[in-house]
């Protein structure tokens, strides 16, 4: 079906809206010095840390987020709406506030953190684990919301059919439910990963900023803006290029050809 002309025009504006800032970055990028900025020790360290932490955050989001989405989609209990709102609150919370809130919960004097510190000698602030915690905090809701929506759309009778064929709940989940929601799961995981990769506010507040330990790419970009905007642009472009490659690659691989909807 063809889109009407006005819709096309608005769509074109929307594309330009997203493309132009990127073009602006490319326009201002110091191409001659780019390579030296890129290969500088600090940049590579921050990039590596960013990738490691964001992948951990994505993994944690899947491990905890899928069961949470399942519970929200499939069970009914008083206050479920409130629980859902609670679990997605970090999407709307200013990340810096999220970081402060994490202090109050997991910091050295926090609700739980004081016992982690006292009993297990575990401190999250100023550690790489703290970065992962901060990123997971802001990223997981993206996965939960996406997966929950997919679970809600799924025909429950397909799972019933699996049960009558001798499949346990767990086998049904693995072999029927999970494959059926796989596109949503991948989309949710990618969104979470992208959010974690770009995370700034909660990370710098909760985990601080130290090269090699907690200084991820966005922090490095922000700090280099203070002194060397050219370097900041190069680092930002690297971050964008990686994200772009992953998003495009995954879309072709997972969303392009196959649409799996259980009938």
């Amino acid at each position: 079906m063809r889109l009407p002309i006005p819709a096309l025009a608005f769509a074109a504006v929307a594309v330009a809206f997203f493309a132009l800032p990127l073009v602006g970055l490319l326009w201002r990028a110091p191409w001659s010095g780019a390579w030296s900025y890129l290969t500088a020790d600090g940049a590579l360290t921050a990039l590596r840390l960013s990738l490691v932490c964001s992948l951990w955050a994505t993994a944690l989001s899947i491990v905890f987020g899928v069961p949470l989405a399942w519970a929200l989609a499939r069970t009914s209990f008083p206050g479920r709406g409130a629980v859902r709102a609670l679990c997605t609150l970090s999407m709307v919370l200013p990340p810096v506030v999220g970081g402060v809130a994490l202090f109050f919960a997991l910091g050295r004097r926090g609700l739980i953190g004081q016992y982690l510190d006292r009993w297990f000698d575990v401190q999250l602030p100023f550690t790489t684990a703290g970065v992962v915690v901060a990123q997971t905090f802001v990223a997981m809701p993206f996965l939960v919301i996406t997966v929950e929506a997919a679970l809600r759309q799924l025909d429950l009778r397909v799972e019933d059919a699996a049960r009558t064929l001798g499949a346990s709940r767990w086998y049904t989940f693995r072999r029927v439910t999970l494959p059926a929601i796989r596109p949503a799961l991948v989309a949710g995981a990618v969104l979470s990963w992208a959010r974690a990769l770009g995370e700034f506010g909660a990370t710098i507040t909760f985990a601080g900023n130290f090269p090699g330990t907690t200084q991820t790419m966005p922090l490095a970009v922000y700090l280099s803006l203070e002194t060397n905007p050219e370097e900041a642009i190069v680092l930002a472009l690297v971050l964008i290029a990686i994200s772009f490659a992953v998003l495009v690659g995954l879309r072709d691989r997972w969303f392009g050809t196959r649409t799996t909807v259980a009938a």
């Binding site: 025909d155 009778r157 397909v158 019933d160 059919a161 699996a162 049960r163 009558t164 064929l165 001798g166 499949a167 346990s168 072999r175 029927v176 494959p179 059926a180 796989r182 799996t260 909807v261 259980a262 009938a263």
Partner: peptide
């Protein structure tokens, strides 16, 4: 539980598993 009952069910909408081949559907049980 349903999976432990000696039953087979043909549902109204058939409810085949769309992400599996026909063979995998039949082999599922």
């Amino acid at each position: 539980e349903p999976e432990h009952r000696p039953i087979g069910v043909v549902f109204q909408q058939y409810l085949l598993f769309e992400h599996m081949s026909v063979l995998e559907n039949v082999a599922f049980g």
